[in-house]
């Protein structure tokens, strides 16, 4: 649920990047940090292991700008993707307003993608949330792999009903990184306008 701070005249939203280990969640945040203008971003925080695997989360605040005197801000988080960090993933999902699911196009990662999506649904259920009821987009990353899985196959596994906005990406080259974030942000703002 979005947070409004009337005193500071801010509306804040929480977007979480979810996905299996090494799918590119942290890469998304890092590339956004490198490419977004200084005035629109805050400090990036990364809690990671020595070998740069996310241990708890990455965090990046973005400032969209002012509308009707209220600053609109997005707090971006990534979850640790490795299977045994499920407790941490649950904590990071608290208060989520929108999710970007980062899928790995690698041929050996199809099952991991499906498992991570299942895990996302389970963890959201603990907050009485359903994936279909909150802003949700899928980024299919690593499309530059020579043996990348075909999009049709990934769509059948990740979104068989073909209802979820899907974006192809090569996050390491900052391709397809802005688009899913923009899309989920639009959905979050639209949901706010509908419910208020």
């Amino acid at each position: 649920m979005s947070t409004i701070n009337f005193a500071a005249r801010e509306i804040n939203f929480k977007i979480v990047y979810y996905g299996c280990g090494l799918s590119g969640k942290t890469t998304n945040i890092k590339k956004l940090y490198e490419n977004i203008p200084a005035g629109a971003k805050g400090e990036m925080v990364s809690l990671a292991t020595e070998d740069e695997r996310t241990l708890f989360f990455d965090f990046l605040p973005l400032d969209l700008g002012k509308v009707n005197g209220f600053k609109t801000r997005f707090h971006l988080y990534t979850v640790p993707g490795q299977v045994f960090y499920n407790s941490s993933r649950k904590l990071i999902l608290r208060g989520v307003d929108g999710v970007v699911f980062v899928a790995d196009s690698g041929p050996s990662r199809l099952r991991a993608n499906a498992e991570s999506l299942r895990n996302l649904r389970e963890n959201m259920a603990e907050y009485n949330l359903k994936l279909g009821e909150i802003p949700f987009v899928i980024q299919v990353n690593k499309r530059d792999l020579p043996d990348a899985l075909p999009m049709d196959m990934l769509k059948k596994v990740l979104d068989p009903t073909a209802k979820v906005p899907m974006f192809e990406a090569v996050a390491s080259k900052f391709e397809g990184v802005k688009e899913p974030l923009k899309a989920v942000s639009q959905l979050v703002l639209e949901k706010l306008a509908q419910k208020a």
Partner: peptide, 12 residues
């Protein structure tokens, strides 16, 4: 809605 869309377009 229009204003937030314009801001999103400006940023992304």
């Amino acid at each position: 809605r229009d204003s937030t869309q314009a801001l999103l377009d400006g940023l992304f």
